[in-house]
Amino acid sequence: MTNAIIVNNLKFNYGNQQVLQDVSFEVQPGKVVGLIGENGAGKTTLLRILLGLLKTNMKVSILGHRPGMSQSVASMFQGDLKLPGVKVGEILAEVAAQYPNPKAPQTVLKELNLSDLAHHYLNDLSGGQLRRVTFAMTLVSNASLIFLDEPTVGMDVNARQDFWINVDRMKNEGKTILITSHYLEEIQQTADQILILKDGKIEFDGTLNELQKQYLTTQISFETKRKGSIFRKLTQVQAIEQNGNKIKISSTNGDATLRDLVPYLEEIQHLNIIDASLENIFQTITRGEKNNAEDD
């Protein structure tokens, strides 16, 4: 079966500014992909190219077609859609009319607990309600490839929960979903594949397990009167930060580093050991944190 998304050596410039550099990846049908990156990493530009909103002559295939040519692509984008004189039910009917095999708007509203909003005007809704309606529009399309651009921005806790339940439901229906986000934590439960974009380049393409194997670090922090530089020789130390007496060591193998730290135990206080969170991993990749110990 052809992959749902194929991108080969994609480059894109806005004038002289290079936004995407040699971006290549593929997405299998039925997979959920998390596209993560900081502001300005190129996520939205990449998404706009995949949707056919920005033209490119590079090789990009969407469901076997050129971007913008497939009838089975939907997107939840970041527009406000505060259109005067338009009711929720009407915008959903408008979207449904554009797709060959849509879901009934009433059914989708019921699934998302939004039935009460059907006769409300769009410009009377709160920001969070609008985001949920925009998501409902994506569900109404019943498209087989769905792009969700920072979908949970502005949603409250319950709406987020409903959102992820519905993403899981779409995944079980065999839909291919690409979600852009600033937050790795948010998509870790659902994503089969993670793409990390940094400065217009794909820095990581793989599963969450692969990401953790490759980037998992243990943070060892303590206080000591010793110079930070002497801890550099410990096994598997990736980075050291020193702030006065406080030292934070990032290790790619916490057990090995701790074994080497034993001779210094009498000289250190407030020892604390934690495995790096996904947020730390994300920061390590996107900010390229290096050994920044201050030798004194």
């Binding site: 913008g68 040519m69 939907a74 406000d80 979207v95």
Partner: peptide
């Protein structure tokens, strides 16, 4: 500016 044109471009080609 409110995104309707983008929506139609995506859905309607």
């Amino acid at each position: 500016n409110q995104g309707l044109i983008t929506l139609l471009k995506i859905t309607n080609r």
